[in-house]
Simulated scan of single mutants.
Amino acid sequence: MEELRRDVALACRILGATGLTTPLLGHVSVRVDDDHVLVRCRGPHERGLLFTTTGDIRLVSLTTSVVCDGYELPNEFPIHREILRARPDVDGVLHAHPRSALLAGLADVPTRPVFGAFDIPAYRLAASGVPLHPDAGLIHSVEAGQALAATMGEAAVCLLRGHGIVTAAGDVPTVVAHALALDELLTVSVELARLGVAPPDVPPTGLPDLGPSFNVDALWRHHVGLLELRGLAEVG
């Protein structure tokens, strides 16, 4: 439990450190059992995602969704609850507000697999297709959460028009890896749209899956190392 709590806190700090979300908005959760998740909540001394501590990661029931000790659930906790209910294949959910997502969604920029070995995980997201959720409002009701889960389907990521992104995976480091890859894909797509060019799709030939030990584990250690360099890796 404490290791999971630390992973969620580090994930939130990585979101803040990489600029993948606005300072006070965004959250990460991980499933603990059939009815409980650890999720980043707002406490009485809230300072933003970059300063998340393990104390901010609260154990919450998917049924009652009650938080104690002066903490409040994210307004958009239904994102986590409804995706986890709909997706027994995933245990981690991330929601963030990268600027790339805002621009790509509002400008209807297509997310196509136009680059290859530059970023293979991002290429694979593009090749699989990035679902676009049309509702720009807060996902703060059961119905809104279910609608988002339906839009996302079995995908690893989802773009919310005028809002942000959601990623889902089997663990916390992987939802962070998906968010970083999606941000790269969206950033390149927006820049290409600015340049007014539309390169052809790249075929998958010569683009092997390098596996989670490289795409996820090494990437996670890299970003935790960057936090260490800034004196921000101590989340206890």
Score class of each variant (00 low, 15 high):
3 E>N: 06
5 R>A: 11
6 R>Y: 08
7 D>I: 01
9 A>M: 09
10 L>T: 13
11 A>M: 05
12 C>Y: 07
12 C>K: 04
12 C>T: 05
15 L>R: 06
15 L>Y: 09
16 G>Y: 13
16 G>F: 12
17 A>P: 01
17 A>M: 14
17 A>Y: 09
17 A>N: 13
18 T>F: 07
19 G>F: 09
20 L>R: 08
24 L>F: 11
25 L>E: 14
28 V>M: 01
31 R>L: 02
33 D>Q: 07
34 D>Q: 14
35 D>S: 14
37 V>S: 10
37 V>D: 11
37 V>M: 13
38 L>W: 05
39 V>M: 01
41 C>S: 08
41 C>A: 04
43 G>Q: 05
44 P>Q: 07
47 R>M: 11
47 R>D: 08
48 G>N: 13
48 G>Q: 07
52 T>I: 06
54 T>R: 13
55 G>C: 10
57 I>P: 04
59 L>A: 05
59 L>M: 12
59 L>K: 14
60 V>N: 00
60 V>I: 15
61 S>W: 09
61 S>Y: 06
63 T>C: 06
63 T>G: 06
65 S>R: 15
69 D>Y: 01
69 D>W: 00
70 G>E: 10
70 G>M: 08
71 Y>M: 09
74 P>H: 02
74 P>I: 11
75 N>Q: 14
79 I>N: 04
80 H>E: 03
80 H>N: 07
82 E>F: 08
84 L>I: 12
85 R>Y: 04
88 P>T: 10
89 D>R: 00
90 V>R: 11
91 D>V: 01
91 D>C: 11
91 D>R: 11
92 G>N: 01
95 H>L: 11
97 H>D: 02
100 S>W: 03
103 L>V: 14
105 G>A: 08
106 L>T: 11
110 P>N: 03
112 R>N: 13
113 P>S: 07
113 P>V: 03
116 G>R: 05
121 P>W: 00
121 P>V: 04
121 P>L: 00
122 A>C: 12
124 R>I: 00
124 R>D: 05
124 R>K: 09
128 S>Q: 14
129 G>H: 10
132 L>T: 07
133 H>E: 01
134 P>W: 01
138 L>A: 08
141 S>Q: 12
142 V>T: 15
143 E>T: 10
147 A>E: 15
148 L>G: 08
150 A>T: 12
151 T>C: 09
157 V>P: 05
161 R>S: 02
165 I>A: 14
165 I>M: 05
165 I>P: 13
166 V>L: 02
166 V>M: 04
168 A>L: 04
170 G>Q: 11
170 G>L: 04
170 G>E: 10
170 G>Y: 03
170 G>A: 12
171 D>E: 14
173 P>E: 00
173 P>F: 00
176 V>C: 12
180 L>W: 06
183 D>A: 04
185 L>T: 05
186 L>D: 13
186 L>T: 11
188 V>P: 02
190 V>H: 09
190 V>K: 00
193 A>D: 10
195 L>S: 07
195 L>T: 03
198 A>V: 08
200 P>D: 13
202 V>A: 04
204 P>N: 01
204 P>T: 03
205 T>G: 15
206 G>F: 02
208 P>G: 05
211 G>P: 03
214 F>T: 05
214 F>K: 01
217 D>Y: 07
218 A>L: 03
219 L>H: 11
221 R>S: 15
223 H>I: 05
223 H>W: 15
224 V>A: 14
225 G>P: 06
227 L>F: 07
228 E>A: 15
230 R>A: 13
231 G>P: 10
234 E>G: 10
236 G>Y: 10
